[in-house]
Amino acid sequence: MKFVKSQLELIDFFIINTKYKFVDAIENNIDVRKLFSEYEMDIDFMPKIRENNQYFVYIKISINEIENPLPGYSLFVEGVCIFNFNDDEAIEEKIKAEYIWSSGISIAINNLRNYISTQTSYFPFGKFNLPAVDLTSLINEKKILMESNKPV
């Protein structure tokens, strides 16, 4: 199929906060893949419009960052993606919002996924791969929280 370039353009991505802790395992023969699959994870994000018609998606992911973490890694990563649109004036604001809420958030998650994978490849238990995310469910949950004005 022919590659069709999106009107949404990723300008840059930055890590703005990160935290890592290694939690040593008591047992020697630990199944790292099974252990990683048991980690509690949380994702939160917030799209915002800033100056010069740039669109920002702030995103954070915490992995096994609980009071009594499982062995291995306890991680927190926060980043920001900066976007704009090709042919900005020709795109309706509603369409721009749809791009940000679907593609923009997906791109932000994938940037953090790559960062986490690269960083953990240097850690004692090896690379941690963030599992696939049900983006529709995540976005719907966020919109419900925003509509009810609950703190997120």
Rank of each mutant, 00 (worst) to 15 (best):
K2R: 13
K2H: 10
K2G: 09
K5W: 04
E9Y: 08
L10C: 09
I11D: 07
I11T: 06
F14I: 07
F14G: 01
I16Y: 12
Y20F: 15
K21P: 05
V23L: 07
D24L: 08
I26G: 12
E27I: 15
E27T: 15
E27Y: 13
N28S: 12
N28Y: 11
N29C: 05
I30R: 05
K34W: 01
F36V: 01
S37C: 03
S37Y: 03
E38I: 04
M41H: 02
I43H: 05
I43W: 07
I43Y: 07
D44W: 00
D44E: 11
F45H: 02
M46T: 00
P47M: 09
K48M: 14
K48S: 09
I49N: 12
I49Q: 14
R50W: 06
E51V: 04
E51C: 01
Q54M: 08
Q54T: 11
F56T: 03
F56R: 11
V57Q: 01
Y58K: 06
I61E: 05
S62R: 14
S62K: 15
S62A: 14
N64C: 10
E65L: 14
P69K: 04
P71F: 06
P71H: 03
P71E: 01
V80L: 05
C81V: 09
F83Q: 11
F83R: 10
D87F: 08
D87H: 08
D87T: 07
D88N: 14
E89A: 14
A90N: 15
A90R: 14
I91D: 00
I91P: 03
I91K: 01
E92R: 04
E98V: 03
Y99A: 03
I100T: 10
W101C: 01
S102P: 07
S102V: 11
S103I: 12
S103H: 10
G104P: 02
G104T: 10
S106G: 12
I107P: 07
N110W: 05
N111E: 15
I116K: 08
I116W: 07
S117N: 09
S117W: 11
T118W: 01
T120E: 05
P124N: 01
P124G: 05
F125P: 02
F125E: 00
K127L: 13
K127S: 08
N129K: 11
L130F: 10
P131A: 06
V133N: 05
D134Q: 06
L135Q: 11
L138S: 06
L138H: 10
L138V: 03
I139S: 02
E141V: 02
K143G: 01
M146G: 03
S148P: 02
N149Q: 12
K150E: 03
V152F: 13
